[in-house]
Design a protein around this nucleic acid. Sequence first.
DNA 1: ATTAAATGTTACTAATATAGTATTATATTA
DNA 2: TAATATAATACTATATTAGTAACATTTAAT
Lengths: 199, 199
Amino acid sequence: MTSPRKQKTRTALLEAGSKMFWKYGIRKVTVEDICKEAGVSKMTFYRFYENKIILAEKLLTEIYESALQDYNKIMQSEIPFPEKIRQTILLKHQGTLDVSDEFLDDVYRGDEPSLMGLIEKYSEISKNTIREDFAKAQKEGWIKKELKIDFLMYMMDSIGERMFDEKLKAMFDDSHDMLMELTTFFFYGMGTSDNTLTK
Amino acid sequence: MTSPRKQKTRTALLEAGSKMFWKYGIRKVTVEDICKEAGVSKMTFYRFYENKIILAEKLLTEIYESALQDYNKIMQSEIPFPEKIRQTILLKHQGTLDVSDEFLDDVYRGDEPSLMGLIEKYSEISKNTIREDFAKAQKEGWIKKELKIDFLMYMMDSIGERMFDEKLKAMFDDSHDMLMELTTFFFYGMGTSDNTLTK
DNA sequence: ATTAAATGTTACTAATATAGTATTATATTA
DNA sequence: TAATATAATACTATATTAGTAACATTTAAT
């Protein structure tokens, strides 16, 4: 029976937190920064969360969970494997699949074991999930048998990263073209002769 | 007789400072942040600058000076006035003409009179410069006589801003197209019948 | 190779900023 | 109106940052 008011401040805090953390990382963002951004008093913050680390944990969990959901939704759909890859890279490119660099940097450089643990846990999960999906795709003939899955994962990651770097210069339509080109190239070297891409 | 070493750390500090200030504003950036980014010890920083505000002043001055130079270079060139406007907006879009929002926000919200003064001084200068250029262009028949210069300046600013907002979504080529469209539209309503744009 | 200039390292204090809490007042909603 | 949620203020303890000093190390020119 959460009152509408309470719900409002809850989402305000969550949104303010994610906005600030995303932009500045964790270290540089103070509780008061978040409160100002949310238009909320400091006491209200502490009624919801013990401190900013706890808030960061919740947000991190939420981000990773929804990212995994997005990914799984794509993978379980009935589209061809290359299209799945394309959509996955697109998700990464749109920034919905990862946390921000500032966020990650702070976690790695700082000393917050709980956050570190969360990130390790989820990257473990996603790594395994992706590995399984790739192995399955390999069995189904989408991927050359000789190729090592780990190498593929590395390549896919680097493609996502390259696209991410270009985000400032890339308009959506064109980055889509770019994605098409990259993944086409990707599959041209990777696919079996049975499976060619429909351009 | 500045040694090459000294020169190197000087530029390192300037670059680190501008990078950090640009990204995070002034408030959130500490001297140590700058030192880390520059790969330089704190003592070295203080041998060059009294504090981070002084550094910010130097950077701000440098940015504004070079922006004014860029602008004047365009305005004094022998190209048609509409093309000058186009190039000026493009400069703005590329971010070389303004300081970052984070930078500005901190100055306006914080209490650093020196920085406030610098910004006011330069925005005064640039406003006057632009007003003069526009008035001259109006005399030369590029701009309808009935139009108020201040209104034009406002419109130009809002176009620049709109483009700036879209930067994340806009690839360079297309933003150039967008610029062409916007300025064409701009001049279609603004230009005299004598001067039509060559598409 | 020697020397002077520039920078790094460490350690420290004072100033400032932030965290977190208590209290009282005000607003919202049932 | 009563109960709940939030705002505002003020406060202390803690943490961070600013800025300085003394000494060690590196760099580059002679």
